[in-house]
Design a protein around this nucleic acid. Structure first.
Lengths: 141, 141
DNA sequence: CTAGGAGCTAGAGCGCTGTCTAGGTCAAGT
DNA sequence: ACTTGACCTAGACAGCGCTCTAGCTCCTAG
């Protein structure tokens, strides 16, 4: 309960210690990390929660720059909730668009997988039952 | 019908002419692009189709390296359909995982959006009807 | 007393995916 | 003749997001 070392935070979050220091330098941490007398970082559970959220942002494609802007808003304290909301909504749109895009891609890929699956199934049979060169690459679909 | 210039292909695909040359250098084109007597590239509709597919691959996160491997398989001609299928299936899994991840992120973000929406709605009212400092940043959720 | 291991800073380096520049050719329009 | 614009090559540069190194300080266990 008495604070976490950088190594522990790395373990919990999945970020490397390098990445944790990097994130701090980049101003992605809402609270400034406290230090022990010897200079070592002491993280709180809140820091871990914040980092977990940052990871979510990152893995949904939010650039570090935007995370930094959000962080700054939070650091400024109450009064700019509308700005935070705007930022979040904009990212929400972005994520939805990504999902849509990925679904389209998935359809295309799934279509190609089906074609190849049939081809391979048939091809295996070909190899067993008929002469070779019964094949045409239908790669323009 | 008599072949497309690099500029036309750029326009159709949305890739820059730079990117088109880059993709070619990187071996991402199934057919080697023909040239006019003066050295200018002449693309076919098939090239555009292929590029369109490459764009799909890219925008679903397939690295150029993997696209290159796929391209090489196609260039080798018939006989390696099982390999192509394996590659496509693996990417299919990857895309599905991405979509799942994005959906989780979207949930988190949507949750936060709701919170802030309420806060902002209430906050506006606050500004109008009550004294300030009725606020607490619930940023650890 | 010494070796290991975790931490520190500052800053270099890297992988990926383009993007842009320099310097040139060529064809068409004015 | 001259300008404009599209194209060419080779290669430098850029942005992003880490990752790693060098050289150091501590603390703890053997």
């Amino acid at each position: 309960m008495g604070g976490l070392s950088i190594g522990q935070v790395a373990e919990r979050t999945g970020l490397s210690v390098h990445a944790l220091r990097f994130y701090e330098r980049e101003g992605l941490l809402a609270d400034t990390v406290r230090r022990e007398s010897n200079g070592r970082r002491v993280y709180t559970e809140d820091d871990v929660d914040w980092l977990t959220m940052c990871i979510r942002f990152r893995s949904s494609g939010m650039p570090l720059d935007t995370i930094r802007r959000y962080t700054e808003l939070v650091r400024q304290g109450a009064g700019n909730e509308a700005d935070r909301l705007a930022l979040l909504k904009s990212h929400q749109d972005h994520v939805r668009a990504q999902i849509e895009e990925l679904n389209e891609c998935l359809n295309v890929i799934t279509f190609k997988v089906h074609i190849y699956q049939q081809h391979v199934d048939a091809g295996t049979a070909d190899c067993l039952w008929v002469t070779p060169s019964t094949q045409a690459a239908s790669e323009a679909s």
